[in-house]
């Protein structure tokens, strides 16, 4: 952020007045956040209490960090945190570039009608309910199922993929990527579509081949989008919902499959322990926020794009 030198620093109020129309634009949005997010934010305090709905927040007993301790000193705490992080890191490594590559590839297709049809088809898996997708995965992963038929072709031994610590993560991650690659590529396609044609023409005149043009024109154009998406993704490293895990896992693969949310889900099955769930949620969110801020700072140094 550049500041003109030798200009006297105006007072805060004066500077705010200068930008009054900005604040006017922000006003409705700020009101929205206050009413629908921050008014309820005090509810976070239940993570530090033994919350009972009947007693309310003011009436429930304060227990400080007890739930955090319970969670972190649990026998399987390290295992579930590790599994969550590993899954998300793999998803980041493979699942993050995939939509970008798909968008770049699609952008290069000439035939408009074909291109649009393919793009429409690519997002369809996103709308299939998780229950159906997991039903398919369970069936295909059986020893005599589709995936094993393919593996057998390559000489691998047949084994139930979801019952094996070796293969469980692969099925989880690949199916995740496949279900979301089309939908996630939309944002990149949108940015690519605003790349000025004249830039491509100029590059072509200069003798740049296809790949060169992609590297020098397309990618820089969508780089801000990529960076922001990456930062936000990194800010989700501790998050992985429990629904898919519950549908796919079994105790025999707890070693790689059990993640924070599925562990907490089982814990809460006997009784709705709001405070424990809230505490784990707060812990996750804090770690996520740390990741996010770090990624943001790094990005600020390395590129010109950052969240703040």
């Amino acid at each position: 952020m550049k500041r003109a030198i030798n200009r006297p620093r105006k007072s805060l109020w004066a500077r705010m007045k200068k930008h009054k129309y900005i604040y006017l634009m922000l006003l409705p949005v700020v009101i929205y956040y206050i009413v629908f997010h921050y008014l309820a934010m005090g509810g976070l305090v239940i993570a530090f209490q033994n919350y009972k709905p009947k007693l309310g927040i003011l009436g429930s007993k304060w227990v400080g960090l007890k739930h955090f301790e319970d969670f972190l000193t649990g026998k399987y705490a390290w295992r579930v945190i590790r599994n969550t992080l590993v899954l998300n890191l793999y998803l980041l490594l493979f699942g993050f570039p995939a939509p970008i590559i798909l968008a770049l590839l699609m952008n290069e297709l000439r035939d408009n009608a074909y291109k649009k049809t393919l793009q429409t088809v690519s997002y369809m898996p996103h709308f299939i309910s998780l229950v159906v997708v997991c039903g398919l995965l369970v069936d295909f992963s059986m020893s005599d199922g589709l995936f094993n038929n393919v593996l057998a072709l390559f000489g691998f031994e047949r084994t139930n993929l979801l019952g094996s610590n070796q293969y469980y993560r692969t099925v989880y991650i690949v199916s995740n990527i496949w279900q979301n690659v089309g939908w996630n590529s939309i944002i990149y396609l949108a940015s690519l579509s605003s790349v000025d044609n004249s830039l491509h023409e100029a590059a072509a005149i200069d003798g740049a081949g296809r790949l060169r043009r992609i590297w020098h024109v397309n990618i820089p154009a969508i780089l801000p989008v990529i960076v922001i998406q990456l930062i936000m993704r990194i800010g989700n490293l501790m998050s992985q919902g429990y629904e898919k895990t519950i549908l796919l896992y079994s105790p025999v693969v707890y070693e790689t499959a059990d993640i924070i949310s599925s562990h907490v889900y089982r814990y809460g099955l006997e009784k709705t322990n709001y405070s424990y769930g809230a505490a784990v949620g707060v812990f996750n969110s804090l770690v996520n926020l740390v990741f996010l801020c770090t990624a943001n700072q790094v990005s600020r140094r390395l590129t010109e794009t950052s969240l703040w």
Binding site: G43, M232, Y274, L289, L292
Partner: peptide, 23 residues
Amino acid sequence: YPFRNVLVFLFVFTMYFSGGLIP
């Protein structure tokens, strides 16, 4: 302009922290 980054942070904060169902 003043408070711009603060506001961004506060908005992004709501993606991670929420009061919960009952509040």
